[in-house]
Amino acid sequence: MNTLKGHPVGLIENFDLYAPKLVDREEYFTPGHRACQGCGEALAIRLMCKALGKDTVIINATGCMQVISSLYPTTAWELPWIHVAFPNAAAVGSGVEAALKVLRRKGRIPNRDVKAVAIGGDGGTLDIGLQALSGAMERGHNMLYVCFDNEAYMNTGIQRSSATPFGASTTTAPPGVASMGNKTWKKNLPEIMAAHNISYVATACNSYPLDFMNKVKKAREIDGPAYIHCLSVCPTGWRCPSEACIKMGRLAVETGVFPLYEAEQGRYRMTVSMPENLRPIQDYIKHQGRFRHLTPEQVQSFQERTNLEYKKLLNKIEHSKSWAEMSANQG
């Protein structure tokens, strides 16, 4: 059962055995939140907050994490937190960032760095919030945006989003006699963010806590916009057992369905060592009810496209240069 067993440690993650003991013990996202059992997104938020530390303002798009954390008159947040609506976390974040900057300049708040961190789900980020996100990234706010991608509108009951993977069954793209489920390939938002020429773009997953936390720390230090796309396993919507949450994330990575990489100043690199030969996607999808209906042919085309996308990423990594390297070459 445990994906670790039978695999060399290096394949899983550069996961120092006792490293969990080194992380910030403070819980900024507290127990008592109403997330489902085994929620990968709640876990990812908890880890993100640890990496960010106290001097953070969280701007939350409407979605699971807002609903489960802010049931008036209580809150699961130890950090200052604001939620306004579904599509506008990046825009509200722009305002928070601008305010922190100007109030600090005017001496109305303490003179120290407080980071604005906007968060949203895949619906609030890839679909309805894309315009606000693009605007905020393009304008260069000193803001980190983290998308917690559970690959559908889980809060409203598992409807398809543009982050829903090929073939998955959702309540608005169900499989049937005339349909295979979701027919489209997942929108590649990290790539769209990279095209905004921001200094830092990364993918992450709740199953690789240290990798994710390192990325959050790195992004936090950037004086400008940064984007992290965190695959967050949703046992409820993916129809897998809650205890399999971490395993599903690992399999998404090991099959190449969701490789973990970062693009720093334009230079791409893999952050978790990948197996020489990717595991077959069957290993990943067979555990999830949302893929149960797929025919062998459909699985095959899922596999082929996964291989192709992975190859595209490897090419990018092989040929990419940072902006500094590019300008040095020109000079």
């Binding site: 303002v57 604001i82 609506a85 506008n88 509200v92 928070v96 305010a99 606000a132 605007g135």
Partner: peptide
């Protein structure tokens, strides 16, 4: 803030006002 829409204009105002501006 040269926002990209009115929706974001008011949203940015909300964030800034929330932060005390």
């Amino acid at each position: 803030i040269c926002v990209e829409s009115e929706h974001s204009a008011l949203s940015a105002c909300m964030g800034a006002s929330g932060a005390g501006a």
